[in-house]
């Protein structure tokens, strides 16, 4: 039995080396980054969330919020529900694409800034309307917190 335990412990050590070893040890925050050699970007998109299952979409958005450095500058395309917040402190509108989880009990979103001169509410859809957003991932600090957004974004309102 002790031999078995010893062998199993060795197995775990080997598994830890294989699973978390060499190629990925440089940065603990690369959790959700797909390896660039195998990921086939379409039309300059690095992360196309519109082709993923709802669980994968939600977890990828979570990873983007948790580990923004990994996604910095990457082109992201995602589908979500349009939402707008009024930032009292900065007196500005913040637009976001909201993504629900598999059971739709929880939701989170990514802020976007459209490329061009758009005025709210004339140039934006109604809240809750399904939209597809494509933009460059960026993170910034405000009020002592880190926020993520898609810059130079293109918005398509879905039927």
């Amino acid at each position: 039995m002790r031999k078995t335990a010893f062998l199993l412990s060795l197995l775990f050590c080997a598994a830890s080396m294989f699973s978390c070893g060499s190629a990925e040890t440089s940065d603990t925050s690369e959790t959700s980054q797909a390896s660039s050699e195998t990921q086939q970007p379409e039309d300059g998109i690095d992360y196309d969330l519109t082709t993923m299952s709802s669980t994968m979409i939600y977890s990828t958005v979570s990873n983007m919020i948790l580990y923004p450095d990994v996604y910095e500058g990457k082109m992201v395309k995602l589908e979500g529900n349009f939402s707008v917040y009024h930032d009292e402190g900065g007196d500005k509108y913040i637009f976001a694409a909201i993504v629900p989880d598999a059971t739709a009990c929880c939701q989170q979103g990514i802020e976007f800034v459209l490329d061009g001169d758009y005025k709210y509410p004339d140039d934006y859809p109604e809240e809750g309307q399904s939209i597809t957003i494509k933009g460059a991932f960026n993170s910034y600090d405000e009020y002592g917190f880190k926020y993520v957004q898609l810059l130079n974004a293109e918005m398509k309102v879905n039927a």
Partner: peptide, 19 residues
């Protein structure tokens, strides 16, 4: 709410682990 939901029902937190 997202954190609470994920913590209570394990919706996606397993897919957000770091190394």
């Amino acid at each position: 709410s997202a954190d609470v939901c994920s913590t209570l029902f394990g919706s996606t937190s397993i897919l957000t682990l770091s190394q």
